[in-house]
Design a protein around this nucleic acid. Structure first.
Lengths: 215, 215
DNA sequence: TAATATTGTTAGACCAATCTAACAAAAATA
DNA sequence: TATTTTTGTTAGATTGGTCTAACAATATTA
């Protein structure tokens, strides 16, 4: 059985490789709040356990078993987030931290029962797809708010960044899951967009709009 | 913050001292599935952290902070058991093992929300009292099936032993929480009791009857 | 291409939690 | 009381996960 630490490395690898396809020791170290040397040691252990491919100075990639384990952890994380949000009335920005702990509970039965209790949800409270029990994950091709033309209205379905600070800002602007957003104007030079949510206007950065997924 | 291991030592100490008031290194080691030497090391650490009183070759006892921490873990354990039993349809004998993991999740908010979600239960699925958020535990003076006179009928309210093997046997005999039991006869010499549950007769040992709490 | 900067690796150390093997104290018993 | 058994302690080793400091490989740029 994998340790919590090992599970966290696999999860981070899964997320980083699925958006960039080239992950380095430094980057991994930064996301795990650990030093590159520590990552290096762990990569050797994960290779030893046949969870990843890795050669000195070469590129890092998950292999079958590692990928499966990563998806299992992500499944658990997202199901717990859904539970916290829907049943225990946690807010959008609070669920992540607790789910980081709950995702490491080992009990296949627990997770299947939880899935059923939640009525087999397809997405978590941030709009991210929940892998099924076979470790299959629906590929989501999603547009961001940055791609919406001026004057158009759209609906928020997910956020890219799950950090509490970002989510709290999102809430402050008046947004929640399924909120409607109208793009009022956009200043290309300043990379700034004016939006309207429930009659409330706000000015947001390019970074912000790139972190909002819309339908 | 305490480690899971430290929490487990405190919990075991709480349980052992509350039924015997004299706990030794060996006994503690046996319940924690660890060697006496390991316990000895840990006792020093717990003393260092001001969680227990302990002198070389002397007796071991929890002090204020340690007791509080132990009760917090027990509270979490029993709330999670209640959740698993009532919401996720786990059986009596399955809840313990998973709760052993869940009890170590750190999040005061989570546990208060869970308590509310479960409608502030007073006892867990084994009939044990759940400590409140201030760490207060109702003292339960409970009679066992061994003390019930021949011919009398009583109601099961809890079990002393929470091991899966015992609970599975309990279920096999036809018992569940709140089941009614009639004591048909008792052989003092053989220390055997004949009981009847829902019309089904069974012969059980003294050990068995001493592990069944009744109203 | 040589110098510099970035990125990755290794060696050696530390801490928590465990072990085994040897030893010491206390309790039970002959 | 002397011997034996039980119980508890210590010393030294191991493992996983981390660190710092030094070094090596690769990439960038003057």
């Amino acid at each position: 059985m994998l340790s919590q630490t090992e599970e966290n490395y696999l999860k981070a690898l899964f997320h980083l490789t699925s958006e960039k396809s080239e992950v380095g020791t430094n980057e991994l170290a930064a996301t795990l709040n650990v030093k590159p040397a520590t990552v290096n040691d762990m990569l050797k252990r994960l290779k030893e356990k046949k969870l990843i491919n890795y050669e000195k100075y070469g590129k890092i990639s998950l292999i079958t078993l590692g990928r499966k384990q990563a998806l299992e952890v992500i499944r658990k994380h997202r199901l717990w987030e859904t539970f916290l949000y829907e049943k225990l009335e946690f807010t959008w920005d609070e669920v992540h931290e607790v789910a980081e702990q709950l995702e490491h509970i080992h009990s296949p039965k627990l997770i299947e029962k939880l899935d059923k209790f939640l009525n087999f949800p397809e997405v978590d409270p941030h709009g991210d797809a929940i892998p099924n029990s076979k470790g299959e994950l629906k590929v989501q091709v999603r547009k961001t708010l940055a791609q919406v033309a001026v004057g158009k209205t759209c609906k928020i379905i997910a956020v890219k960044d799950n950090s509490a600070s970002f989510l709290q800002y999102v809430v402050k602007v008046g947004l929640g899951l399924s909120s409607k957003i109208k793009v009022i104007s956009r200043q290309e030079f300043d990379e700034i967009t004016e939006i309207e949510v429930n009659g409330k206007k706000s000015i947001v950065s390019k970074k912000f709009t790139e972190n909002i997924f819309i339908a």
